[in-house]
Design a protein around this nucleic acid. Sequence first.
DNA 1: ACCTGAACACCGTTCAAGT
DNA 2: ACCTGAACACCGTTCAAGT
Lengths: 182, 182
Amino acid sequence: MVLDRTQVVDGACEMLRGQGLGGLSMRRLAHDLGVKPGALYYHVESKQHLLVEIATRILDSAPRTISTTDARQAANDIRDALLSIRDGAEVVSFALAFRPGALDPFGQLHRLFADRHPPREARWAARTLVRFVLGFVAEEQNQAELVSTTLLADFPTRAAETDSAFAFGVEAIVSGLEAVAT
Amino acid sequence: MVLDRTQVVDGACEMLRGQGLGGLSMRRLAHDLGVKPGALYYHVESKQHLLVEIATRILDSAPRTISTTDARQAANDIRDALLSIRDGAEVVSFALAFRPGALDPFGQLHRLFADRHPPREARWAARTLVRFVLGFVAEEQNQAELVSTTLLADFPTRAAETDSAFAFGVEAIVSGLEAVAT
DNA sequence: ACCTGAACACCGTTCAAGT
DNA sequence: ACCTGAACACCGTTCAAGT
């Protein structure tokens, strides 16, 4: 079926977009690609490696703002990238846990903090901000899915609040990190 | 077999402690309790509800420091509770996503921020800190498991760094939240 | 090189039927 | 009331064998 690694990852992304992480299985993916499950393992080592590949793509879609000196801007860019695909934050979180340091948002933010902080603290600072962004967006996306499935409308105020809640958190963390700088 | 809900949750906790979240299945749990899988569903609605129950127990083991005015102390207490059982942070994170607001760490921290912040911000502040703690400990516990299974010793410096890294993050966030207070 | 067939070792959940 | 038997509808992964 002239399948290759890129097409497998493409298919997986499409599936993630449509069904979410819970609906993304190797068997379903194989079926959609017109192939038997075993065939996928000729192109990809495991489902976990496939998820790391997807995570890389998600983060690569964020602007490579080498010019940006602003950690606030970087946080916003990463959030947008995560929001661009269903369960994006969860996928990236998994990838970060599975292959620590393999992804880029750390590297980018690390550079931003490297001048204001000693190396050890710069690492901590970057991780602190990354964790906030990942946690925030994961909650955001999970809530969206809970609302859509449970039909529990909750308070509709929440949706409007998210942007300012995110800005509030980023501001607090970034300014806090600056203040704590040694 | 005179089984009841409490014993099911007890068994699940024990299993979590021994095998981790990946090794905790309803079928294995049933086997260990000397019962067939279907029997569990007479006592517990689903695996997800069971996990929420476990999460509640984990957080209840944290000191109810009503007296504490210090968010830093509360963060430390929550961290200790999460660390007391394998994959504790992951279980609590799931429970928080599945039943938002059902757990207590939010409530406790919320009260701490309620005097320095307007209600909306107090909510955001509490969530920001909770997210940091959960993310930090999840990473901490995942890394421990990766190291133990992969035998990839990494740099052994990491283990010694975690305490100060946690303190650094908490300090930055708490002082940042105070500074941003309206 | 690339894929199928077919299996292995699992899952969570449901539900009639037994006691 | 509490549990078993047995099924339903799935998983991820492996690997001989085919082409």
